[in-house]
Amino acid sequence: MGIIVNVDVMMAKRKMSSNELAEKIGITAANLSILKTGKAKAIRFSTLDAICKALDCQPGDILEYTED
């Protein structure tokens, strides 16, 4: 799949740790790790909304499309 999740890049820009972000958006650290490593099959709008709110960014900053 050509969708890349750039949560770790945004986290580094905002200097936020995984545990802190996981706590803010209300998911477990394990699920955040699945999201960061690109193993996730789908992402809920509610989770995306929470991530954007916590990292103060747009969905396009987190998700990126590349040709396979």
Binding site: I27, I34, A40, K41, A42, I43, R44
Partner: peptide, 8 residues
Amino acid sequence: QEEQDLTI
């Protein structure tokens, strides 16, 4: 079920 489990 796997897809559901991997939906964050």
